[in-house]
Amino acid sequence: MNNPKIKIAVIGLGRLGSFHAQNIVNRVDSLELVAVCAAENQLQWAQDNLNVSAVYTDYKKMIDNEALDAVVIASPTALHPEMTIYALNAGLHVFCEKPLGINLSSVDEMISVINSHPHQIFQSGFMRRFDESYQYAKKMVGQGAIGDIIYLRGYGVDPLSGMESFTKFAAAADSGGIFLDMNIHDIDLVRWFSGHEPVRVWALANNIAAPELKDLGEYETGVAQLEMDNGSIATLLGGRHAAHGYQVELEVMGANGWLRIGEHSEKNLVTIFNQEGIVRPAFQDFIERFNHAFILELQDFANNIIKGQQPSITVEDGLKALKIAKACQESVNTGKVVDIKL
């Protein structure tokens, strides 16, 4: 006997929220999109493209009025805690995009409410853990294929084409800083691959490629050096200025070998030979690169609801990633080495 579909709503229809909504409608059979909440100018798109008639600009009214089982929160980061708290208190399961939030006191309150609802599923959107390449590499590391980890390096650099959009966003909202906005996934992967926690960080940042961000209190490029609790080292690089497209990679150096995921941002196996030389098309954004992983994480969320089991990615993972990112930002702001207190 088939389980009835999980009735779900999406809050936020920006680039990622709209992609989640389309995945629910077209690619995750166990979920049924019954409502969305978004800005007024996005509601017609939702009705036209998602086949959903229940559209709202007030998430509380949506949760109160609709017969929902769960909600996907893809709103601006600062709103994640209040929306999660309201949804959980209304009896819903919650999938919340990373980061958990920006303000630690709000996140602490959010976590307290999550822990007070142990029979509801809360899942955070660290989708790279669902990517086949990262899973394969993690399995190799776990099997000891490269020996004890000595060093990790994570890159996350957005395409130059997104700079105008980010500048508008930064002028209107708090991104949380370069490391929270750009390296939260890399931070999670460093912890996931190494099995260790960072204890100290020294970070630097600049706006050489985008001086216009200085007046907004933002950085274009940031680099953080992390000391782990076992003496290993990790480097994070976040940026917004890759001319060729979206550059994301993870390198893990072991005592007996190395592995590298995504060294080249290659879209497919096509090579073009023309007047520009020998060209390999590149991924242009994170959705294109992690398309399948986004589907798998929503399928995992649905399966966890059906089975009544908490996800392998815990709220503690989200909290630690947030604290590490904020420590990196503090190091940039103060120019000092910062101890990381998890």
Rank of each mutant, 00 (worst) to 15 (best):
E82I: 15
H20Y: 15
T235E: 14
D48I: 04
V113F: 03
I261Q: 04
R260V: 07
D131G: 05
H292F: 11
Q47C: 10
N333A: 13
N65L: 08
A210T: 08
K7M: 00
L79M: 11
H244R: 14
V71G: 00
P4K: 08
G154W: 08
Q299Y: 05
N51Q: 14
G144H: 10
E197T: 15
L237R: 12
G254H: 06
S133A: 15
T314W: 01
Y86H: 07
N304M: 08
L213R: 13
N2D: 12
S124G: 11
H80N: 11
G14K: 04
E330N: 14
F290Q: 04
A321P: 02
V28A: 00
S232D: 12
L259Q: 00
V201S: 13
S75A: 15
M163H: 08
F166N: 09
P81D: 10
A242C: 13
V72P: 00
Q247K: 11
K7N: 06
I324N: 05
I313S: 09
Q225D: 10
R128I: 01
S161N: 09
A170E: 01
P81S: 09
A327T: 03
G162K: 12
E109G: 03
D58T: 06
Y151Q: 14
W192R: 10
Y59A: 00
K307S: 13
V199Y: 01
S53G: 01
A46V: 12
P118R: 01
S133T: 13
L250V: 07
L152E: 15
L92N: 03
L79H: 09
Q44P: 00
E97C: 04
A67H: 09
F283D: 14
V10L: 02
R200M: 14
N333P: 01
D48G: 04
G177L: 02
C37P: 01
G147S: 09
I187E: 07
S75L: 03
V315P: 04
D317Q: 03
A325N: 07
E197W: 12
M253W: 08
K7E: 03
N207Q: 07
E251T: 14
K168R: 12
G222D: 03
A39S: 13
N3K: 14
G245K: 06
I313P: 04
A39I: 09
Q22F: 04
S232V: 12
G147Y: 10
I272A: 05
T221D: 13
E32Y: 02
V252Y: 06
Q123V: 00
Q284F: 04
N103Y: 10
V52N: 02
Y134P: 04
